[in-house]
Write a protein that binds this DNA or RNA. Structure first.
Lengths: 339, 339
DNA sequence: ATACAAAATGTAATCGATTACAATACTAGT
DNA sequence: ACTAGTATTGTAATCGATTACATTTTGTAT
């Protein structure tokens, strides 16, 4: 292992000078710089990052906690985060929470142990009080998710209004019996999308039937199973709004399994606009989140927090967009089993 | 920031003793241990990981380089890696190479800088000589990919034989004009799957028409575009073998776009068995890789390398499986445009 | 009570860089 | 030639833990 003293010896200077050359401090004479660089080259010297980090007490690493890495929506956000991170000399440490609160908490400890300079959470099932406290001392940004009443900087879309927009699209097509397959209701995200749905229904004077609101977990399987439940009702909904695309696709598969078709018999709308939603048949009508942009913005905020720059505001809402494809259609009959 | 000396002072012992308590060395009297633990509790002391790592010259972090994080196949491998990593007290640092060789090289430097104790590569476009040299000094494991003539430990399936198996499935169904959409040929993986395809064709006395072998890049888009090329031929293939599922799905979409159907007009077989391949319609016939197991095994090997345990062998081949679903069918006519 | 071994604890060096402060070399102005 | 001021370089403290080695305490056998 080549150390800085080895370089110093070879170049016939002090370690301080070598260090100054490495960090481009600009105070080293050109000749000396050249001698040092030559020695570094010759010895193939690589500075020991741990030592540097200890001295500077910084890691140049940020931690990103994803609820579920197999969901492609998050990989797009990640891409956005990574782009800005690399540009600014940060490494990205990825934590997959496996949809599991304990794992999520575990990652917080990594931040606490100063293994990372900051953290971006794409999930927020963690105890609010705990997170709020940590965020007071350490740089934390929430992306996609947010936390009620907390001052933690957040980047997301307005889930309530976009959810309302999706529901209104169905209502606008004449649907009245609309089923809602929600995300897990222990996360704000899940609750917000439900809230948006309910708002839209109420505002158009439509009843919210408890049987037509089911709690899923954002997985394909839950979408499939809950749709099966809807289909077992005497009066199944004529349209279904799933709180994410994976569940929407699951729902469509269930409908098809029952020999019915989308959108002819039942309309389905999703949320997120993951890649597969445009490939799947019928192509999914959905709400597009600017995933990449969310990632970028979140990372930008985090860098500001790390550098202790002040933020002009701490809630960033980006624009979503309703993407109309093939999975929704005008409602022709108020029941899907006409006699 | 609470330091170990603070704890030592409070517990009225030396820092050495505190350290011994923390590391469970077992040589500290029970009373003292309790006093120290109490102080740690009271002060809410968190050891500084950087200092420890510097002293011990280990990071308890391993680096995983993925060619493309948006491909769900890799997230499954990652899950396998992570499971074993966490179990053994390792953190996983994820590098997304964005299908880009330079990015890939960049991650090697992280290992070199000792920011990680070892590395698992799920891609290997890097210069062979360079990688081989690094692997001599530092723990490196290849997963999914491998490198010809190198001694780097590897976990994968036998891509040649599984590819042959896939091609033979089509041949067994009577297909003779079979198109092959390969992966990038600058990676062994891509070349191997092509090799398997060619072997199967030759062994059954079928000609390999250059026009029917096209190089893709594992993306949905390339599958779509290259299939369009096939369809523009005077005699398009009656079956297509795509070197991964994403391209296979792209190919199917192209076929449908042309008003033809799968498998009635053209059979399509994929590779990887990603989740969507069973959901997509027609459900994809494909080769299943034991992605999770590959990840686990790779991490196990890496841990052995890090601990300088000896490996019994350094090429691990896991079992693949041909999964027959709906996208392939008996060949009825040797041309898809019968006069 | 004594001697010796084993157990427990302490002291201080160490990991490898960065950086505050000190010292020296150089420049220009008189 | 002398001096103030700047540019360059060096010395040594420092980050916060771990650990080799030294020392003290405890336990046991005689």
């Amino acid at each position: 292992m080549i150390r800085i003293v080895d370089v110093a010896k070879m170049a016939n200077v002090s370690t301080a000078t070598v260090s100054r050359v490495i960090t481009n401090s600009g105070t080293v004479k050109r000749e000396t710089t050249e001698r040092v660089l030559e020695a570094i080259e010759l010895l193939n010297y690589q500075p020991n990052v741990l030592a540097r980090q200890l001295r500077r007490s910084e890691t140049n690493t940020i931690l990103v906690v994803v609820p579920d890495i197999t969901n492609t929506f998050f990989s797009k956000v990640l891409r956005g985060i990574e782009a800005v991170a690399i540009e600014n000399g940060y490494q990205v440490l990825l934590g997959d929470a496996l949809n599991n609160v304990e794992r999520e908490n575990g990652y917080i400890n990594i931040l606490r142990q100063k293994k990372a300079d900051g953290m971006i959470l794409l999930t927020a099932r963690i105890d609010e009080g705990l997170l709020d406290e940590i965020a007071k001392e350490l740089p934390v940004v929430l992306a996609c998710e947010y936390m009620e009443g907390s001052q933690i900087p957040t980047v997301s879309i307005d889930n309530i209004s976009s959810s309302r927009k999706a529901a209104e699209h169905l209502i606008g097509l004449g649907h009245q019996r609309i089923g809602f397959i929600s995300g897990p209701l222990n996360v704000v995200l899940g609750r917000d999308r439900l809230k948006g749905f309910k708002q839209a229904m109420s505002q158009h004077g439509l009843p919210i039937e408890p049987l037509l609101v089911q709690e899923g977990d954002f997985s394909y399987e839950s979408g499939y199973n809950l749709m099966m439940k809807f289909l077992a009702l005497e009066h199944p909904p004529t349209a279904v709004f799933a709180a994410n695309d994976e569940m929407a696709i699951g729902a469509i598969k269930a409908i098809k399994f029952r020999g019915l078709s989308v959108p002819e018999n039942i309309s389905v709308i999703g949320f997120d606009n993951i890649k597969i939603s445009s490939i799947f048949e019928p192509a999914l009508t959905t709400i597009a989140q600017p995933a990449y942009d969310i990632g970028q913005k979140a990372m930008e905020l985090l860098i500001k927090l790390i550098n202790k720059d002040s933020l002009t505001k701490n809630q960033y809402m980006l624009e979503d967009e309703l993407i109309i494809r093939e999975s929704c259609k005008k409602c022709l009959h108020q029941t899907i089993f006409p006699k």
